[in-house]
C-alpha cells in the first residue's frame, strides 16, 4: 500500500473540471480506482485512509445518485461524511453560496463536494474556502467525476481509451457530462463525435475537438462506444424538440440505430434514464451491450480515488493552488 500511495501523485488542490488535467493525472486516478473496485466487492469495504477527515457534501441542486455515491466513497475511506441539504434562496442564490461557503469553511472540513445549478459556481466557491473542493456538477459546465467513471468503465471493458471512437448523443447543449467527457476523451486520445439535433448542440462545439453529426446512423457508424445523454424533459417547453415521440424516432437509441455501431459497441448512460425517450428499454437493459449499471459501480471507485487524491493532504498545509 505504501509504495502505491507514493506513486499516486495528483498535483491539484481541487477537482473543478477535467480541463487542466494531464493524461498522467487521469491515468493515475483511473489506476487508483481499480484498486477500489476490488475493495468495494469485498465484504469488508471500509478502510481508514481518511480517518479523522471531514467531508461535506453540499448539493445546491437535487441529486440522489451522485451525492450517495460520494457519501459512500467517503465512508469507505473512513472519513466523516456529512450531506447537507441546501435550500437555495430564491432571493439571491449567490449570496447564499458565498455565505454558505464561509460558514462551512469555519467548521474546518477537509473536502467540500459541491453541486450547483450555475456554471462556474463551484469554482467561485473554491476561491473562498481553504479546503479541497470537488465539482460534483456545475450548471452546463463540468461534471468531472462522471467523465472519470465513464473512462474507467470504458478502460475496463475495452482495456484502452486511446484510439476508440466514442459517440456522445443527445442534449449536448445543456450537458455538463458531455463537456467533461469531450475533454477527457480528447486528452486520452479517443475520437469523439457528437450526435444531436441542431437545437441541442451549443455554438462552435466543433472547436472542442469533436466531429458533429445530426443523424444517428451516420454518427454511430463504426463507433466503439455509444454514450447517451439524458434529455431533460423541461426542454420540451423551450421548443428544443417538438415532441418526445419525434425525439425518440430520430435520436432515441434502439437496436435499429445501434446496428450502425461496431458489433461489440458499448452503451453508456449517466442516468437517470428516460426510457423510451433517449433510449429504448430493451437496449438499456441488454446485459451484453449496456454497461449502465457498471457505470454506477465505477462511480464509487472513482470518487474514492479522487477523495484520496485530494483528502490526504491536511488542509492547513495544503499548498496554494
Amino acid at each position: 500500500m505504501t509504495s502505491e500511495l507514493a506513486s499516486f501523485a495528483f498535483p491539484h488542490r481541487h477537482l473543478l473540471g477535467i480541463e487542466g488535467l494531464s493524461p498522467d493525472d487521469i491515468t493515475a486516478l483511473l489506476d487508483r480506482s481499480e484498486v477500489y473496485i476490488e475493495q468495494n466487492r469485498q465484504a469488508n469495504k471500509t478502510q481508514s485512509l481518511l480517518r479523522g477527515r471531514t467531508i461535506m457534501n453540499l448539493f445546491f441542486e437535487p441529486s440522489t445518485r451522485t451525492s450517495t455515491s460520494f457519501e459512500l466513497a467517503g465512508k469507505r475511506l473512513g472519513a466523516d461524511v456529512i450531506t447537507m441539504p441546501v435550500q437555495s434562496s430564491s432571493v439571491s442564490k449567490g449570496e447564499t453560496l458565498i455565505d454558505t461557503a464561509m460558514t462551512l469553511n469555519a467548521m474546518h472540513p477537509d473536502v467540500l463536494i459541491v453541486r450547483h445549478s450555475e456554471s462556474g459556481a463551484v469554482q467561485l466557491l473554491s476561491e473562498k474556502v481553504d479546503c479541497a473542493v470537488i465539482n460534483a456538477g456545475d450548471g452546463m459546465h463540468e461534471h468531472p467525476t462522471q467523465a472519470l467513471l465513464d473512462a474507467l468503465t470504458i478502460r475496463l471493458r475495452k482495456s484502452r481509451i486511446q484510439g476508440l471512437t466514442v459517440a456522445i448523443c443527445g442534449d449536448v447543449a445543456h450537458s455538463r457530462v458531455a463537456r467533461s467527457n469531450i475533454q477527457l476523451l480528447n486528452i486520452m486520445g479517443a475520437r469523439v463525435r457528437v450526435v444531436a439535433p441542431r437545437t441541442l448542440l451549443p455554438a462552435a462545439i466543433d472547436r472542442l475537438g469533436v466531429e458533429v453529426f445530426h443523424d444517428m446512423k451516420e454518427g454511430l457508424k463504426d463507433v466503439d462506444i455509444v454514450m447517451m445523454l439524458r434529455l431533460q424533459l423541461e426542454r420540451m417547453q423551450g421548443s428544443f424538440v417538438p415532441s418526445l415521440r419525434e425525439y425518440f424516432h430520430f435520436f432515441g437509441l434502439d437496436y435499429q440505430k445501434l446496428e450502425a455501431a461496431k458489433p461489440d459497441a458499448l452503451i453508456m448512460h449517466p442516468g437517470p434514464m428516460n426510457r423510451g425517450v433517449e433510449i429504448d428499454t430493451e437496449v438499456a437493459d441488454d446485459i451484453n451491450r449496456s454497461v449502465i449499471q457498471q457505470q454506477v459501480e465505477m462511480g464509487v471507485a472513482v470518487r474514492m480515488a479522487v477523495l484520496e487524491a485530494l483528502g490526504r493532504t491536511p488542509r492547513n498545509i495544503a499548498p496554494a493552488r
Binding site: D138, H141, E142, R179, P202, A204, I205, R207, L208
Partner: peptide
C-alpha cells in the same frame, strides 16, 4: 466557443 466551453 468560449460560452460553450464555460457552459454559459
Amino acid at each position: 466557443e468560449i460560452a460553450t466551453r464555460l457552459g454559459l
